[in-house]
Design a protein around this nucleic acid. Structure first.
Length: 911
RNA sequence: GGGCGAAUAGCUCAGCCGGUAGAGCGCUUCGUUUACACCGAAGAUGUCGGGGGUUCGAGUCCCUCUUCGCCCACCA
């Protein structure tokens, strides 16, 4: 196949991304290019991709991230690393349960009607059917992931890892059962963790209620945004230093609408400056109140149930009402009792469940928690010591701050889809006991009775994804993959899951993966207190990519309908263009306003590459090897393009290394379009018309530079580069494994760069003259260059013919002195170190030419004035760095010379 | 309430260690020159958000204000 391509040495006339991309992806995959076995003779490079939810389909954030991941993978593969990029998916507890429940609802069913077992079966069916759709989308994007190593967070081997994690933490007492106020999602009827709650300021009301003293000696006013919780109040608190309440502490109040008597207590939690200074305390429905309640031994009265409806404890008048219905009735009732003092408009900080969008109900309930403090300590150290690098650097501080203030992690979820908590219970004589067990048998053995049942809850999805890097590589088994590929190299992800996921992977990695210090390097992790083992980091670099927003800077969301579908972009512009445009915008920025115009531009770039390649290919003889011609054969332009290429190679490698993909992409764009196409290819044209050595040299140069550029571009635009590379003379079976270009100091050539700069300036000056005089490009003229400076003369000697061709002239002569006495035939304009002239025949309008010269003179005068002012400032001359002063003097001299030449022409034309 | 980021041409964005403000798109004028009109050539376009400060010199460093965005936070 590949050999047929080589023999053809041509490309289709029009670039069709779809055809090229489908063909190559199939081939790469068939040939197993993405799969590598551990190779001890090479360095490993490994990425375990952030597993998308099985409910997910590719969005722009995925497209950006996976382009970055694949580009990094391809770059390292080409650099000779033994490379693994491991894909997978996440079972996504709440999200999946939600879609399956929705599906059931269409059939008129609820999960309760179906029963747990059958519901979980339905979830599995769903995942079989739709759970891997996104893999195909990754393929469309060109991701070179190892499809032989895909992992799912509910694979049996992955479950082993979760069991091991749970067992270890449970046995060490890090997992505990606790009764606390948790964030309750009323829609899904499950607890969610703090970081799955988003706070929104919503317009609302602040209600001021009066609570009378039990002895009818007056009342205390309290304020609340959630009146329905008052039914669960078990105290009113005021600040111990609040003079207004000091004499009253200990007195009892009558809680309106109930028969309850509650005390006025003193607690620092009450802020004297807020409202009346007194605050109602509802230990069962507010985290602060809960803690306050613990301090004062207050009863906890649950008045809102898990379904969001009022409980029996709320009293017969309210029980069974929805929480917001109850709120209305309570306000009415309080008003009727004359206990509603006032209602104010108020912006309420409202907790919203990230998943369901429901208002979170803080609720007292029994849950499983992980005490993460001891796990956080090493995770802080590893980042502080830069064993793990977090980029852009600003996220390091954010991470550290969060980790240092980390709170217990609620890991139980009242869902059915997920990993059921491996805890078994038994009850004897009213006393309950529990033990860790992977199965009923283990449970019976552990608890010593047949009367056992498993905990009903499942684990937080992040409890499983926290193990991703090592569990996907085989842990808890000591596999070859784990040994070789761990620690992984890069974790690139969105900023919103820095805490949810990244922090937790760092904690589990360091906690579970330990290796003998002697066999590891200092960079691999943290030395344990015993001095003999090392806790190993999960990855070396964390890169936080930008958020992709729409072109108006709005977050893309389904409800707003402003999302861009990357697959749609790929269909219309090609995966290469989509990837290129994403990489062009992927740097250290916080967000990307994505406009389709960027993809369009990237598509044009691919097209340009395609056509330039067609040109090169159609000008190659069969004998061309694509080897770099020997130094002696290279012309100034050849040396120049090599020098430019070398700089590009250096920039691209450096910038990829620091995750400045935007800079790398820009450098490639500019090199290919401006240096290679605009100048080198144009200058190659006349040389290709020559015969023999001259033609052969330029053919080989074109092939060599283009082939190198393709390799440089391949991580960003994999498909088009493979297609063209196969048609060019090349070594190897696929560009995937071709060596990535490395800088070669020998190609660095300031002399050639200077000569080309002069050539370009001269060409432009001539074109500009022509355009300003309105001479049709088809009119052939003669021109002359007066090279007053030896440098300019040297630079131009070799390129005069090329300049003539590029400026579309009959001939360009290098002359000793300005053509004079021929007013009306010659026009001229100064350039650096000399002057260019165009012989335009008799048609010149003298008045117009004078005007043109005067315009130029005015511009030059401005520059001279600026430089002179600067140089006349004694402070500048004395204090600025000498080389800066010298440079300024040089510039002034240059401008003065230009002025002299212009003035001379002005006089010549009768000014 | 804390923290972070952004503000540069009409639009989207580059500008590293302070030393003559750049690109792409759009715009104007030309153009079928044997790769490309998804192109080429020539052009026009800026109080670098405001105000202070440091400096011979500030888009770049410091302070401050304004606007927008993000993250964190238990204020009823």
């Amino acid at each position: 196949m590949a050999t047929e391509q080589i023999a053809k040495r041509e490309l289709a006339k029009a670039y069709d991304p779809k055809e090229v991309e489908d063909k190559w992806y199939r081939l790469w995959k068939e040939r197993g290019y993405f799969h590598e076995e551990p190779d001890p003779d090479r360095e490993p490079y490994c990425i375990t991709i952030p597993p998308p939810n099985i409910t997910g389909s590719l969005h722009m954030g995925h497209a950006l991230n996976n382009t970055i991941l694949d580009a990094m993978t391809r770059w390292h593969r080409m650099r000779g690393y033994c490379t693994l990029c491991l894909p997978g998916t996440d079972h996504a507890g709440i999200a999946t349960q939600a879609v399956v429940e929705k599906e059931l609802a269409r059939e008129g069913l609820t999960r309760q009607e179906l029963g747990r077992e059958r519901f979980v079966e339905r979830c599995w069916q769903w995942r079989e059917q739709y759970g891997t759709r996104i893999y195909h989308q990754f393929e469309r994007l060109g991701c070179s992931y190892d499809w032989e190593r895909v992992r799912f967070t509910m694979d049996p081997s992955y479950v082993d890892a979760i069991m091991e994690e749970f067992r270890s933490w449970y046995e060490r007492g890090l997992i505990y059962r606790g009764t606390r106020v948790v964030n309750w999602d009323v829609r899904y009827q499950s607890a969610v963790s703090d970081i799955e709650v988003i706070t929104e300021t919503r317009p609302g009301k602040l209600y001021h209620f009066r609570y009378p003293f039990a002895d009818d000696s007056g009342h205390i006013t309290i304020a609340t945004t959630r009146p329905e919780t008052m039914l669960g109040d078990t105290a009113v608190a005021a600040n111990p230093n609040d003079e207004r309440y000091k004499p009253l502490f200990g007195k009892m109040l009558r809680l309106p609408l109930t028969e309850r008597r509650i005390p006025l207590i003193a607690d620092n939690y009450a802020k004297p400056e807020f409202g009346s200074g007194a605050v109602k305390v509802t230990p069962a429905h507010d985290l602060d109140d809960f803690e306050c309640g613990l301090r004062h031994n207050l009863p906890q009265v649950v008045v809102i149930g898990k379904d969001g409806k009022m409980t029996e404890a709320a009293g017969p008048r309210y029980a069974g009402l929805d929480r917001f219905e109850a709120r209305k009735r309570i306000i009415e009732d309080m008003e009727a009792l004359g206990l509603l003092e006032k209602i104010e408009d108020y912006g309420i900080q409202t907790p919203i469940s990230d998943r369901s969008g429901e208002i979170i109900e803080p609720l007292l309930s029994e849950q499983w928690f992980v005490d993460v403090k001891p796990l956080a300590a090493p995770a802080i150290e590893a980042v502080k010591q830069d064993k793990i690098r977090i980029l852009p650097e600003r996220y390091k501080a954010i991470y550290l701050h969060w980790m240092e203030n980390i709170r217990p992690w609620c890991i139980s979820r009242q869902l059915w889809w997920g990993h059921r908590i491996p805890i078994w219970w038994t009850e004897e004589g009213g006393a309950r006991r529990h033990a860790f067990a992977r199965s009923r048998e283990e449970a019976v053995a552990a608890l010593g009775t047949e009367n056992v049942w498993q905990d009903e809850d499942v684990l937080d999805t992040w409890f499983s994804s926290a193990l991703w890097p090592h569990a996907t590589l085989g842990w808890p088994r000591q596999t070859r993959d784990l040994e070789y590929f761990y620690p992984t190299n890069l974790l690139s992800t969105a900023q919103e899951i820095l805490y949810l996921w990244v922090a937790r992977m760092i904690m589990t990695g360091l906690d579970f993966i330990k290796r003998p210090a002697a066999t590891t390097s200092e960079n691999d992790g943290l030395l344990e207190p015993d001095g003999k083992t090392r806790a190993i980091i999960p990855f070396r670099d964390v890169y936080i990519h930008a958020t992709v927003l729409d072109e108006h800077g709005q977050r893309m969301s389904k409800s707003k309908g402003n999302g861009i579908d990357p697959i749609d972009l790929i269909d219309r512009y090609g995966a290469d263009a989509t990837r290129f445009s994403l990489m062009q915008q992927a740097g250290k920025n916080q967000d990307i306003k994505y406009s389709e115009q960027r993809t369009d531009v990237a598509g044009n770039f691919c097209n340009k590459l395609w056509n330039a390649s067609r040109f090169v290919l159609m000008n190659l003889d069969e004998t061309v090897t694509g080897q770099l011609p020997p130094e002696g054969a290279r012309t100034v332009t050849d040396r120049w393009i090599l020098s430019r290429l070398n700089e590009t190679i250096q920039t691209v490698n450096e910038r990829l290394m620091s995750y400045d993909m935007d800079d790398a992409t820009r450098a490639l764009y500019q090199f290919l379009w401006n240096d290679f196409c605009d100048w080198y290819v144009e200058m190659a044209k006349p040389r290709l018309r020559a015969e023999g050595a001259e033609r052969e040299t330029v053919q080989n140069m074109l092939a060599f530079v283009l082939e190198t550029t393709l390799r440089l571009l391949h991580p960003i635009t994999p498909f088009i580069t493979e297609e063209i590379w196969q048609a060019l003379p090349h070594e190897g079976e696929s560009i995937l494994f071709a060596p990535y270009p490395q800088p070669n100091p020998a190609w660095n050539d300031p002399e050639a760069e200077a000569a080309m700069a002069a050539t370009i300036e001269t060409t432009r000056a001539l074109r500009n003259l022509r355009a300003e005089l309105g001479i049709a490009p088809s009119t052939r003229l003669s021109a002359a260059v007066l090279a007053a400076e030896p440098d300019l003369r040297a630079a131009l000697t070799a390129n005069a013919d090329l300049i003539a061709t590029l400026a579309r002239l009959n001939a360009l002569d290098l002359v000793e002195q300005a053509p004079s006495g021929q007013t009306g035939k010659w026009v001229g304009t100064p350039i650096t170190g000399g002057e260019v002239f165009l012989e335009i025949g008799e048609a010149l309008d003298l008045g117009k030419e004078l005007e043109r010269i005067e315009k130029e003179l005015a511009a030059v005068a401005k520059e001279i004035e600026r430089a002179e002012t600067k140089l006349q400032n004694p402070n500048f001359v004395q204090r600025a760095k000498p080389e800066i002063v010298a440079l300024e003097r040089e510039r002034l001299a240059e401008w003065q010379e230009k002025r002299a030449r212009l003035e001379e022409r002005w006089r010549l034309f009768g000014g």
